[in-house]
Every structure is written in C-alpha cells, then in structure tokens.
Simulated assay, not measured.
Amino acid sequence: MNPQSIHQWFSVEQQRKYVAQLQGRVGITRRRAEYFVKLWAYLLLKQRQELGQHLKQPLRELELPSGFVPCTHREAQEVFYGDDDRGSDRSAGMMIDKLVALGLIEKDFDGNSTCIRIRSLLPNPQDSSKAKATIKFFPDYFNPRTDAIPVASFLARNYNWMNKKATALPHRIVRILRGWAEQYPTGMRVLRRSDTQDAVGFYILYPVAREFEANFFLSPRNSLHLSATWDDDPFQIALRGDRNCTSIFVRSWQIDLPYKQSINVCEFLKDVQKTLVNIQADFPNLCDIYTLVIHPTDEQLVSALGFQKTNQDPQLSLNWMYLPLDKYLSLDIEQAVSGLQFD
C-alpha cells in the first residue's frame, strides 16, 4: 500500500465528512483531524492488503482495523504530508504523539517498529461542539491537595517520550509537586476549567538560591528533576526575602495537549508575567529567567518569547535557555506568539 495513494482509495470528499465530525472534540483542530482520518484509512487499507483481503476502490466508509498495525514514521510522513516538503519524519512522529495524547490512537513498539491502533470512534458532533463552546479556562493557584495528581498525569505524558519508566513517574511527580508547594506556593499556578475545576495547565517559577546558580552553566541533563528518575534535587529554593537571589528557574510550563490552543497559551503566559511581579516583592533583585525545553514541540514557543540557548548538552538534544526578566515583563504576549500554530 502506497501511503501517498490514500486519496485514490478514500476520496477527499469522504475524508471531509469524517473531519467535520471530529472537529467538535476539544483539542482536535482541522489539521489534526485531517491527519488522523488519513492515518486511519491507511492503516485499514494496509492491514486488509497484508491479510490478503480483496480491496474495493474506493472506500465508502472507515472501519476500525483489528489491533495494532505497524507504521513507521516515514510511512506516517508520507500519509500526512505527501509530496509537501513541510513535513519530516520527526514532525510526523510528533504528530503521532499528539494523536496519542488526544486519545485517538494508541502507540506501541514491538522491538522492531512502531505499531498503531485506532482507538476512537467518531463522537456526536452536536454534543461535542456544544461542550467545546461552553468550556472556559482561568489561571488559579495550585492546590496541592486537589491538583497534584491530575497535573502529574499530564506532565508524565509530556516526559514519557524521554523516560520510559512511565508507571513510576506520575507518583514521583506528585510527591515533588507537593514538596515544592510547601516551600514556595506563590510560584505555582494552574490553568483551570471553569466547569469541572480540573487543572489542565501548570507552571512553577522557582527562585534559586545563589549557591546553586552555577548549575545554569553546567550540562543541562544534570538539572533534570521532574522528568528524571533520581531523587536528589540539583537546585535549592531561595528563602523569601533573600536579596542575593537573582535567578528564576521555570521548572515546568505545560498545558495538556487537548487544551493547548492559542487563547489558552496567551492567557497562561500573561499570568506568568503577573506572577513574576508578585515574586519580585519577595526577591527584589531578580533579573534572570532560565528554563529547559523538555519536549521538542515547546522549543518554538520558548524561542518566540525571546529565550536564547546558552549551554547545550553534548549528548542529549537539551539546552539551557535564558531570557532577562525585564524583557519578559515588557513582552506583548499575543504579538510574540502570533506566528505560531498550536495544532
């Protein structure tokens, strides 16, 4: 089965019918829906061909393939982008990860190749569109009693591409988050749904004690903590009122993928500006912001905000990124991210 021949087997007109039904779900943009439908059709046709079943052209409707179907990133790249130069194997792999996070597919690795299972039937478009239209979001304080577990769950999904010990990771993150909340809750914020009060976004701004600022100039991998498997924290928080504290470490900034739309990203980044002003009241000499980009999809966002790479890990695709605090506070957030697409 040639991945680029999808349109011959399943017409664009038929694809659009499925795309229209999918777009009502939270987090599913038109482009994600288009890629998912094409992937679904390709896996169905590929499996039927491998089983020696007679293929009638064209398909009138899609059925769920049975179980997992092997699919390389190269195949996915050809399915998603065809002859378009904009898509690479790497970007196809990241799109697959997005579809996994949205609950549309499951991904497994059998030791030789990536295998994908279509797991989501189409929703009721009227019900889901109504739900999407009524959901509102607002920044709020992190509540360690009610927010730690849901936040740890979506943070773990973000880190799992790098750390395969996914079963232990969420519990460890819960413990770390609650510990940080005891130390300095001012820097911990969530993005909350107005209907369920569930946290769907999270960030922590961590004032670093002066004795630990040297870590910003060492290998980035040594400063991983939430996404790592060791217990020793390479950083120590500064005590409130410490005039020697000049650095803020953004230890995490994430919005769960289904809710990562431009309006929510802007709202949450503006909240960071407000929180930094509040933190300055406790640490008046703050002037530097550092962060690590854990997931490749976040690098464009961080760069758009003006962060610059300072120190790269020699073995991992991991960089320290730096921005003067005053520059971030004066930033027009909406203008800075206007050129980005969150789909």
Rank of each mutant, 00 (worst) to 15 (best):
64 L>Q: 00
75 E>P: 04
96 I>L: 06
95 M>T: 06
63 E>G: 07
106 E>Q: 14
59 L>C: 04
107 K>P: 01
94 M>K: 06
74 R>D: 13
103 G>I: 07
86 R>K: 15
77 Q>E: 00
102 L>I: 06
97 D>R: 06
96 I>C: 07
93 G>H: 05
90 R>Q: 05
81 Y>N: 03
72 T>G: 10
117 R>I: 07
107 K>E: 05
114 T>E: 11
85 D>L: 14
80 F>L: 09
76 A>T: 00
63 E>P: 06
90 R>W: 12
116 I>C: 06
66 S>V: 15
80 F>W: 03
63 E>L: 01
91 S>L: 04
77 Q>F: 02
74 R>I: 13
100 V>W: 01
95 M>P: 04
76 A>F: 05
116 I>M: 01
114 T>K: 08
75 E>L: 08
63 E>W: 11
73 H>P: 01
104 L>M: 10
66 S>Q: 15
77 Q>N: 00
85 D>G: 09
105 I>R: 03
106 E>C: 12
56 K>E: 15
68 F>K: 04
97 D>G: 06
71 C>R: 03
108 D>Y: 08
96 I>Q: 02
58 P>N: 01
60 R>M: 14
90 R>I: 12
98 K>D: 14
105 I>K: 07
96 I>N: 09
112 N>A: 10
115 C>F: 07
86 R>C: 11
110 D>V: 03
91 S>W: 06
112 N>T: 13
99 L>M: 13
77 Q>R: 09
62 L>C: 09
73 H>I: 04
104 L>R: 02
111 G>P: 01
78 E>T: 10
108 D>P: 05
64 L>D: 01
86 R>H: 14
95 M>C: 13
108 D>K: 09
55 L>V: 15
62 L>Q: 12
114 T>H: 05
82 G>T: 05
94 M>P: 04
89 D>T: 08
99 L>H: 05
114 T>A: 11
79 V>L: 02
80 F>H: 08
114 T>S: 12
96 I>Y: 10
90 R>H: 06
66 S>F: 15
69 V>S: 12
78 E>P: 12
85 D>H: 13
76 A>W: 02
93 G>C: 07
87 G>K: 02
83 D>I: 13
106 E>S: 15
90 R>N: 12
91 S>T: 08
75 E>V: 02
116 I>K: 00
94 M>E: 10
67 G>P: 05
62 L>V: 12
74 R>Q: 11
93 G>W: 05
113 S>A: 12
86 R>A: 15
83 D>A: 14
92 A>W: 00
86 R>W: 15
102 L>P: 07
99 L>V: 10
107 K>T: 03
115 C>Q: 11
91 S>Y: 08
108 D>V: 10
117 R>Y: 01
62 L>K: 03
61 E>V: 13
92 A>P: 02
84 D>Q: 11
87 G>L: 06
96 I>A: 11
85 D>P: 08
